[in-house]
Simulated assay, not measured.
Amino acid sequence: MNTVDQILQVARRTVRIEANAIKELENSIDSAFAKAVQHIHSSQGRVIITGIGKSAIIAQKIVATMNSTGTPAIFMHAADAIHGDLGIVQKNDVVVCISKSGNTPEIKVLVPLIKNFDNKLVAITSHRESFLGQEADYVLHAPIQEEACPNGLAPTTSTTAQLVIGDALAICLLELKGFTDQDFARYHPGGALGKKLYLRVQDLVEQRPKPAVSPATSLREVIVTISEHMLGMTAVVENNQLVGIITDGDLRRMLSSGKDIDSLTATDIMSGQPKTITVDSMAVQARELMEELNVSQLIAVDANGNYAGVVHIHDVIREGIV
């Protein structure tokens, strides 16, 4: 296989095989799945997810998804479990075992040990009649017609099906818990994703200077203020209330008008309706408003209209909120 057409043919065949398997997977979601979700939701313990080989890798991903969506979960490698790591499993934990065949030697050793501990066992397997399928309290069936591997050996379609079953478990538990975007932010405080959910305008304006002049400030002082703060603008404030804004553009238009600058004050050139946002708004809302208004900055005010500072598009980009 060395031509572009042959490569594309194989790639598309792989996608088609796995897509068809996922489509059929919907029909395998039955009452056992619902009961497993209910049991996990009502249990007082954690979810211990185990597997071996490629299924172990899928188990780790499902653990990560559950932990990030409010369901405490721990990964336990099936081979390591029978050599000491079984101590991870506590009294009220629910064990989820992932295995395509359900008959691997490690699984056959591990399952009876879990049963002896009296923990509930959930199986994710392609074979209901396997050892794992027969021993599990709940069987989440993940049937496949064929692996995408032409030799039928490399776990491809089967691991994709396992992953989808795991995602379905996690999302059902999320829904039962009433898990909100604010809950999500608590578990994702770092990175752009977390910042979109918790970072507010107040957090941004605290990092910026607050250029301000009074309505009676002379034009010369206005120019100095704008230059000092390097934001291309200044707020016009009276008794801490925002009354206007002066931008570089306002200055250029005034200078081109030929007026006597010595007689002008901030009131004479300011725009009386500046674009504002409240300090308790989310930073992502500030970015969206800037895009909508086609501006690079907004003046932040508190609930009483008091001038709080300036949020600039550069602040938003720096925080990774794009």
Results as ranks from 00 to 15, higher is better:
residue 251 L to A: 04
residue 297 Q to E: 14
residue 192 A to I: 04
residue 198 Y to C: 01
residue 106 E to F: 05
residue 224 V to I: 15
residue 257 S to K: 01
residue 167 D to T: 12
residue 236 V to I: 09
residue 124 I to A: 03
residue 9 Q to C: 10
residue 82 I to T: 15
residue 1 M to I: 07
residue 34 A to N: 13
residue 291 E to A: 13
residue 35 K to A: 11
residue 222 V to E: 05
residue 93 D to S: 13
residue 197 L to Y: 13
residue 250 D to N: 13
residue 309 G to N: 11
residue 281 S to L: 02
residue 250 D to A: 02
residue 8 L to C: 12
residue 151 N to P: 00
residue 285 Q to C: 01
residue 310 V to S: 09
residue 288 E to K: 14
residue 267 T to M: 11
residue 37 V to S: 04
residue 225 T to R: 06
residue 242 L to V: 01
residue 255 L to E: 02
residue 17 I to H: 03
residue 155 P to I: 10
residue 314 H to A: 10
residue 27 N to Q: 14
residue 209 P to L: 01
residue 217 T to A: 14
residue 297 Q to H: 14
residue 143 P to K: 14
residue 193 L to D: 11
residue 22 I to R: 01
residue 7 I to P: 01
residue 264 L to S: 04
residue 82 I to R: 02
residue 5 D to S: 15
residue 297 Q to F: 04
residue 184 F to I: 07
residue 304 N to H: 13
residue 242 L to K: 09
residue 208 R to W: 00
residue 281 S to T: 05
residue 13 R to L: 14
residue 6 Q to A: 12
residue 218 S to A: 01
residue 111 V to Q: 07
residue 186 R to P: 00
residue 7 I to N: 02
residue 224 V to N: 03
residue 94 V to T: 15
residue 175 E to M: 09
residue 230 M to Y: 00
residue 302 D to G: 07
residue 68 S to R: 03
residue 177 K to H: 13
residue 29 I to D: 05
residue 301 V to Q: 08
residue 230 M to I: 05
residue 132 L to Y: 01
residue 86 L to F: 08
residue 59 A to R: 06
residue 17 I to A: 08
residue 216 A to H: 04
residue 177 K to T: 03
residue 255 L to T: 06
residue 309 G to I: 10
residue 247 T to A: 06
residue 186 R to L: 15
residue 301 V to W: 10
residue 37 V to Q: 11
residue 247 T to W: 05
residue 181 D to N: 12
residue 179 F to S: 10
residue 46 R to L: 07
